[in-house]
């Protein structure tokens, strides 16, 4: 069930631009219904942590004739939307990350759109649409092959 405006405003009580953030989150979650806003503790590189809102769920990515539900997590800093979200691919245990130009081994996502973020016009909807295009060309995760590993002919 999508979070209501009141619930979001409560979650975003410590955010500097609460109304702007609330409006964008409502907009994006109404279009990409599987993305859910959650409050959680985000640990920064320097070891400090902060209670931040993240949008967690899947986005539909067409790839070679099929549509895959790629799991992502978008963390909104408390200065959102004037700072870009911190974005991750969140592989399940049946998936492996495919590192590449846009994704590192931790699943962190790097995009010129994030690097050159400026609000407006940069926003979550634009970000997700670019993720769908980029991941449609180069999927960030693949499903692990379920074929059993061949037994070695010689016992160890």
């Amino acid at each position: 069930m999508a979070a209501s405006e009141a619930q979001l405003k409560k979650m975003l009580s410590k955010y500097k631009y609460r109304d702007l953030s609330t409006r964008e989150i409502l907009n994006v979650t109404s279009l990409y219904r599987d993305l859910k806003p959650l409050m959680d503790s985000y640990v920064f590189n320097d070891g400090s942590s902060r209670e931040l809102l993240n949008l967690t769920g899947t986005i539909p990515v067409p790839y070679r004739g099929n549509t895959y539900n790629i799991p992502i997590c978008l963390w909104l800093l408390d200065t959102y939307p004037f700072n870009p979200p911190i974005c991750f691919v969140k592989p399940t245990n049946t998936m492996t990350i495919k590192t590449g130009k846009h994704v590192d081994a931790n699943g962190k996502i790097y995009l010129p759109y994030l690097h050159e973020w400026k609000h407006p016009p940069s926003d979550l909807l634009g970000l997700i649409q670019i993720l769908i295009v980029v991941f449609g060309e180069e999927p960030p995760v693949f499903s692990r092959s379920t074929a059993p590993a061949p037994y070695s002919m010689y016992p160890a």
Binding site: K36, G57, T58, Y63, R64, P91, T92, M95, F142, S145
Partner: peptide, 14 residues
Amino acid sequence: LNGGTIPTAPPSYT
């Protein structure tokens, strides 16, 4: 993920 859509990914041999 919270009972939402099941995450899927392309098979690696594509």
